[in-house]
Simulated assay, not measured.
Amino acid sequence: MTSAALAPDPELLTRARDWLAAGERVALVTVLHTWGSSPRPPGAWLAIRGDGSMVGSVSGGCVEQELAERYRSGQLGGGLPARVDFGVDRLEAGRLGLPCGGRLALLVEELSAAAPIVALLDRLEAGELVARRVCLRTGEASLHAGGGRPDFSADAQAVTKVLGPAWQLLLIGDGQLARNLARMARLLDYRVIICDPRELFADPEPLPDVDYSRLMPDDAVRAFCATPRSAIVTLSHDPKQDDLALSEALVSPAFYIGALGSKATAAARHERLLALGLESRQLARLDAPAGLPIGSKRPAEIALSILAGITAARNALAGGL
């Protein structure tokens, strides 16, 4: 593999582990900061083998080739992690394939052994949310619990990236709105589960890359939403289904919980959930009516509104707001 291929983090780490186990030199490149337009966000990874083979991506342009050549020739790597800047001016941006005027700050880190990568992969395979922290003063990489941390952070002391279970969206109730919301959420790399135990709502043409569940809604919340990287939205128009899901969702670690319906429907739901024993502080977590107020009427617009609300909550959790 001589050109960079976009790869999920576990796949990239597995490739780096195998290279290290075979005695190869390996560098891990991390996007630290971007200015202007940039195809890859902070936290994106690229792994480079000593012969210039690569997996992952940090720019989507020619930066990868430049990095590979410099690493192969010995200009990069060795010693402590080093910061490398690209695209400082318009001419450099064009030469490297960056959007015009864009800038990119990268951290180049030489991986010394396979064992730390094996330890990280073991924890990921066990379903843990893990924070990998690189101390810039010593170069030491350490593993920590990932809960309650932003996805990525970088300062003068350390660079920390959280890895683990994918962001996921559980939709209670199938139908046109659920399908629209599922399609949009897949574009943002959510794992989407549509749960509807009602026989009449079984979809004869299930969406590709979407999981379907016939569990009861409260069981589905327990099964799929055990991490803070979960969002739950009730869409069934059936209080029995929605209330089952919400009674469990509101005591779960999910970062977003929303319910479809009008303000009058939301008020009635609030009273029902209080009667079920939920507390006002728990009910305050519920976004109802779900989504940002954009005047939406059609199913696609409502889906857009809900996904915008989910995105705002996720960015706030990640420290992006």
Rank of each mutant, 00 (worst) to 15 (best):
V221Y: 04
P217Y: 06
Q75Y: 00
T14H: 10
A4Y: 04
Q176A: 08
M54D: 06
L171K: 09
G23V: 02
H33A: 15
L46M: 13
A22M: 04
G291C: 03
I232D: 03
P289C: 04
D238P: 07
R25Y: 01
L129S: 08
S252C: 11
D287F: 00
G277R: 11
D151K: 11
V63P: 04
P206E: 05
D243A: 13
L235R: 05
A141K: 01
E92F: 03
V26K: 02
K161I: 15
T160G: 02
P217R: 05
E109H: 13
R298L: 10
L169T: 03
D9C: 11
C62G: 13
A5N: 15
L28F: 06
C100P: 09
C62M: 11
E24C: 13
L273G: 08
V58R: 07
L32E: 06
D174M: 08
C100A: 15
A105N: 06
T160S: 09
E199G: 04
G87E: 06
A68Q: 01
E140V: 01
K263C: 14
A312N: 10
A288G: 13
V210Q: 09
L292M: 13
G295E: 00
L121F: 10
P8W: 00
C135W: 00
D242S: 12
P217G: 11
P165L: 11
D287Q: 00
P293R: 10
S142T: 14
A220G: 10
H237I: 09
A68N: 00
P99C: 07
A266E: 02
D209Q: 12
G319V: 05
A185Q: 03
W35E: 11
R90G: 09
C62R: 14
M216Y: 12
P81A: 06
G277Y: 02
G261F: 04
P197Q: 08
R183C: 08
V221K: 05
L188I: 15
G97R: 10
M184W: 09
R15G: 09
L200A: 14
Q157M: 12
A47D: 01
L111C: 04
A82E: 14
L28V: 08
R186G: 06
E110F: 01
Y212F: 12
V233T: 07
F255N: 03
G139W: 00
S280L: 11
R285C: 09
R132H: 04
A245T: 03
L276V: 07
H237T: 08
L111H: 02
S305L: 05
V88E: 12
R90E: 15
L32R: 13
L107N: 02
L246Y: 10
L104N: 05
A82L: 12
A166V: 15
L321T: 07
L111F: 01
R15M: 10
E109A: 11
L136G: 04
D89H: 05
V63Y: 01
A223Q: 15
W19A: 13
L200H: 04
A4C: 12
E69Q: 14
P42I: 06
G309M: 08
L200Y: 01
A249K: 05
G36N: 06
L278T: 01
I232L: 12
Q157A: 15
A5T: 15
A312V: 12
P99G: 05
E109S: 14
L120D: 00
A231S: 14
W19G: 06
G94S: 12
D209T: 07
A267Y: 00
L106I: 08
G146M: 07
S3M: 12
R49L: 10
